[in-house]
Design a binder for these strands. Structure first.
Lengths: 159, 159
DNA sequence: GGTCGATCCATTGACGCCCATTGATACCCA
DNA sequence: TGGGTATCAATGGGCGTCAATGGATCGACC
């Protein structure tokens, strides 16, 4: 398996540590990144996390702007400045920074959600409501498309 | 690791000393530069800092202008003339010059922000507001560009 | 002789690293 | 097929190391 899939709910311990799900760890190991690269999601109250694949995605985004341009510098500041590379201990755990926890509203438990090249870390309650909203959106979209109770998209349409 | 990454908030002591984050120090050591090369950032109320890699970047910037041109001389004056090479003490600390502190509005605490080949030193409050502004820009730009794997925003999605 | 600065030392608190426990799941064998 | 066992993921805690910080001493240059 080379993609992050499925979701898992886990708790932070007294020291603020939280285990990365074992299946995600094996993906990270395959990816070759030492540690866990994290930053606050731009459009959601969640943490985006991953390895080299995620990092490459971000750098590709930055490289779309010419060197020394104002936009590029703002991208660099905003993405690098808010990101954190967390160390993974021998048991596969990380401690989230205060910034990350504040952005996602995380206190003592989280949900890991696999999204292919990356995964997200949510505060469980917020994830539930986000999921409900997303599901409602999907329903209205499929209705509007006029494809009731059929698969909305063929496999691999968007990666 | 051979690049400056992540960010750290630290305080100046009564003597004006401030520790360079250990991870940054190890990059500087690898870079081989003795001390810390600093200058006021051109476009921001921050201090640019680094080692040989930063110096090389600056020279590359200057070399984009024809020799003896007005622009080139102004770049040289502006960059070299305002720069300072700070001494790093046995504990990995530096004292910022008054010029640098004035430019960045630094009094008794700072934030170090890794930006790859260099890092920046900010006054925490200004960094926060700058980050907020940059992030807003990034949001609108990524929407316009059509970020990969961002969710579709259907019109009329109720909130 | 005094002040400023630089090098050295001492404290403390966080973090990395290690091991122990528990609970669930998969596997094996009767 | 059911029971027992081995394996591994998740969790909790202890301890040592080192980064960050504060203070003290030594020296140089006014």
């Amino acid at each position: 398996m080379d993609r992050f899939v499925s979701n898992t709910a886990l708790r932070l311990d007294a020291k603020g540590r939280v285990s990365i799900p074992a299946s995600f760890r094996s993906v990270l190991a395959r990816d070759g990144f030492d540690g866990l690269y994290c930053y606050p999601a731009l459009d959601q109250e969640a943490i985006d996390a991953g390895g080299n694949a995620l990092l490459a995605e971000i750098e590709a985004l930055i490289d779309r702007f010419p060197p020394y341009s104002q936009e590029r510098e703002e991208f660099r500041i905003s993405l690098y400045g808010r990101s954190a590379t967390l160390k993974i201990d021998g048991e596969g755990r990380v401690v989230l920074t205060d910034d990350l926890k504040a952005h996602a509203g995380i206190s003592d438990s989280v949900v890991f959600v696999g999204l292919g090249q990356k995964f997200q870390i949510w505060e469980p309650q917020r994830f539930r409501s986000h999921l409900a909203k997303a599901t409602a959106t999907v329903r209205t979209l499929t209705r509007r498309l006029g494809t009731p109770r059929s698969e909305p998209q063929p496999e691999g349409a968007r990666e």
